[in-house]
């Protein structure tokens, strides 16, 4: 993270974001701040509420879900919570955009990919000819061979990797200040994953775009993120810059996630190895600290009340964690 960027207005400032699925809180009071040119990873196992959080920011929540009261989402200072559809449409594709997990189904099967990229610009008032030229240029920038040929092809004629490049072109052609990528490489072959991540990283740096990268894969985080927010069962449990998080993780859940990637050296991990299980269904989320049923350090306090997300800076760097037993974790 670039220290001087702290002084500027954040690109995205989320305060107290909550998402309710009918009457259950699927995302519970999360805060996120994102600066220009920075990549923040939101990481956690499947079912943690990562996608709902990102859709909430984009104003794309499904019908069954709604924003909780008191949610504040500032995009360059503009409040998005409660924004009407027309105003949102002026921002989406223009100042904020999103890439999804499934590149193939995320594209309209019956429209040539070039037209799908061009449309991002034309709906925001760019003249057709200019929009086409910029779309073609963008296809070139995302490293698609023969862009002029691809421009007129349909998704079914392209591979998954090429489709995801098209999605990246589509997301970046409007020069957004914020890009949200929800599991952008999960559906791709391992060999393609690194290429796509590199491409995204390069384009973000070049344009000073802020990236909110959503993933369950710590390997992807290690390759891409400047800062990392770890999410468990609708809450953020740890937030630190990537290096700190990888070298001195504090939350037991973070350590569990880190153990899942080979080649990252963490201190002895015999205890956590044995923590089994997955994220439960939202109706079964525990009282108190939601991780306690899977946590080896869980005490009565943990069962009663959720620990707050506290900043315990390390070497002058912010490192937030929500755990009563931080000291024990460090002893592992």
């Amino acid at each position: 993270m670039n220290a001087s960027s702290e002084t500027h207005t954040p690109v995205l400032e989320v305060r107290g974001l909550g998402v309710r699925l009918r009457d259950i809180a699927a995302v519970d009071d999360i805060d996120l701040t994102l600066y220009a040119g920075e990549a923040l990873a939101l990481v956690g196992e499947s079912g943690c509420g990562k996608s709902l959080s990102s859709l909430a920011i984009m104003g794309l929540l499904p019908h069954v879900a709604s924003l909780s009261e008191g949610t504040s989402i500032l995009l360059q200072g503009q409040q998005l919570a409660g924004l009407d559809e027309d105003s949102y449409n002026r921002l989406r594709g223009n100042r904020m955009s999103m890439i999804f997990q499934e590149p193939f189904t995320s594209l309209n099967p019956l429209m040539p990919v070039g037209a799908q990229i061009t449309e991002v610009l034309t709906v925001h008032g760019v003249p057709e000819a200019e929009a086409r030229a910029r779309a073609l240029d963008m296809l070139n920038k995302v490293g698609i061979p023969d862009p002029a040929v691809r421009f007129n092809q349909f998704p079914f004629e392209l591979s998954g990797g090429i489709c995801q490049r098209v999605m990246i072109a589509l997301a970046l052609v409007g020069n957004p200040t914020l890009l949200i990528a929800d599991e952008p490489t999960t559906a791709l072959d391992v060999t393609i994953q690194a290429q796509i991540l590199d491409l995204m990283r390069d384009l973000m740096r070049e344009r000073d775009t802020a990236l909110l990268l959503i993933t369950h894969d710590m390997g992807v985080v290690a390759e891409t993120a400047d800062r990392v927010a770890v999410m468990y069962a609708g809450r953020i449990v740890e937030l630190a810059d990537a290096r700190t998080l990888f070298t001195s993780p504090r939350h037991p859940y973070t350590r569990l996630l880190l153990e899942s990637i080979p080649g990252i050296s963490t201190p002895p991990k015999t205890v956590l190895r044995t923590i089994a299980g997955t994220v439960p269904d939202i109706r079964d989320w525990a009282e108190g600290c939601r991780f306690h049923p899977r946590c080896p350090f869980a005490s009565d306090d943990c069962r009663k009340a959720a620990p707050p997300l506290e900043d315990l800076p390390l070497d002058g760097r912010s490192h937030k964690v929500a755990c009563r037993h931080v000291n024990k974790t460090e002893l592992l």
Partner: peptide
């Protein structure tokens, strides 16, 4: 995706 592009 179309909605994320800002298409009405």
């Amino acid at each position: 995706t179309a909605r994320a592009k800002g298409v009405p």
